[in-house]
Amino acid sequence: MINKIVSSLILITGILGLFFVSCAPERREEATDLLTDTMIAEDMEMTDENVGEMISGVPNPVEMSVLLQRSDVVYSQDLLNPDGNINNYNTNFKRALNLGVYGTDLVYMNIYDRTVTTLSYLRNVQELADDLRIGQFFDYETLNRLSESSRNVDSVLYITNRGFDNMTRYLIDQGRSSIAVLIAYGTWIESLYIAANIRTMPPNKERIHQRIGEQKIVLDNILLLLNNYRNDPNFNDLFNDLMDLKEEFDKVSISYVYEEPETKVVDGNLVVVDKSRSEVNINQEIVDGIADQVNYIRNKIID
């Protein structure tokens, strides 16, 4: 009798196990646009693998936020995309872009230890990720719990960044690299928007201006990525706006002096000694021009 019960329990457990492994997550309401998962431009030259290689060249918003904080820039909630704007995003295009935007806002808030206000932004990131069918990479429960204490900022940033990286890799593996590109673009434009609109004094101001000027390097990459999907009118629109921004960045000059690097071993690890240097030539007028165009692009995205 007992053997029968045990056998039945094991059988039921095995079947349930199969069920939980194989069943798909519940789907949220589908977006209204026709952004298909595989968007192939007629003359597309970049494969998903190419996109995967290049997309990691879009900077992580952590670096810009850390620079701002260390430059004594005062935190400003007003700069961030209002959390209520999520109700406006009913297309996959808008959702992907603003997933990137809110992701950067989340990083910014965490760098500045604004743990209380992160809750609604965490929810927004989760909701948008779920809508795009990539929510499984965002550990909302753990992040919510960790966000309660400022001692956990490093862990929060690690989990958030890794979540976004995993989303990107998954999208590219699934042939949905266009979504990955939109998320990366949203991340970048929000980071640039925040940097271009802060108020600070010299010499911190010059440091931030230098970093803004260096985004000229990234912009070329992003243009290449967007160009891949220009058959879609929305992508074409983004591309054209970014070309207008490029006109402002063309006023920035970056010069390089390269020298052969040397290496030395320190405590069993390799340390590079590189005497190469770069110099960014940018002034307030150029920054203002960049800021105007970035503001226009960013506000169009979040609206």
């Binding site: 390097i217 071993v265 069993g268 690890n269 390799l270 190469s276 240097r277 960014v280």
Partner: peptide
């Protein structure tokens, strides 16, 4: 080497 450390002096790709 377990890790490589690089103090960057030239921004770029």
């Amino acid at each position: 080497f377990p890790y490589v450390e690089y103090p960057v002096s030239a921004s770029g790709r």
